[in-house]
């Protein structure tokens, strides 16, 4: 099999990096999605409106990429109980660990932050192990 560079993934990733850089350069904020949502749950002065605007932009981005031919995948075959359980863990874990794939994986790693590098390694290794266990159980 021949390997081809996944240009869409690379370009999409570059947009994430640009987004995080602009947000930090212009207003000093960290583009970590779990942090943006978490901050709205415990609101502080001057910390809510930009978060709401950020989330609104994210939700509406669907309409921006639609004319370019990008659409959301159909995931209606997923088990809603399993997905809800996963959501609880993701919400709990990202608050306890202060970040997710964006806050640690992009902004923290880009800053060479030791905490973020360890956290990214920890969640990557764990997720890979969970997928391996699911494969061994025949659930994949």
């Amino acid at each position: 099999m021949e390997f081809t560079i996944p240009w869409a993934s690379l370009f999409g990733g570059m947009l994430l990096g640009l987004s995080a850089a602009l947000l930090m350069l212009f207003s000093g904020k960290v583009a970590g999605i779990s942090g943006v949502i978490g901050g709205l749950l415990t609101p502080q002065k001057r910390e809510s409106s930009w978060r709401a605007a950020f989330l609104a932009g994210m939700i509406l981005s669907l309409l921006i990429v639609a004319p370019l031919g990008f659409a959301l995948p159909d995931i209606s075959d997923k088990n809603i109980l399993l997905v809800s359980f996963s959501g609880l863990l993701v919400g709990f874990g990202t608050r306890l660990g202060n970040g997710c794939t964006s806050g640690h994986g992009i902004v923290g790693m880009g800053r060479f932050s030791k905490r973020s590098i360890y956290a990214t390694l920890a969640f990557m290794v764990t997720a890979i192990a969970v997928v391996l266990i699911r494969r061994l159980l025949g659930a994949l």
Binding site: A8, L18, A20, F26, S27, G57, S61, V65
Partner: peptide
């Protein structure tokens, strides 16, 4: 600036998520 940057970054971030396949 804080709010406009937030919106633009959010739109870029969401677009990146969809385009990249995440």
């Amino acid at each position: 600036i804080r709010i406009v940057t937030g919106w633009i970054s959010g739109a870029l971030f969401g677009s990146g998520m969809i385009i990249s396949g995440m």
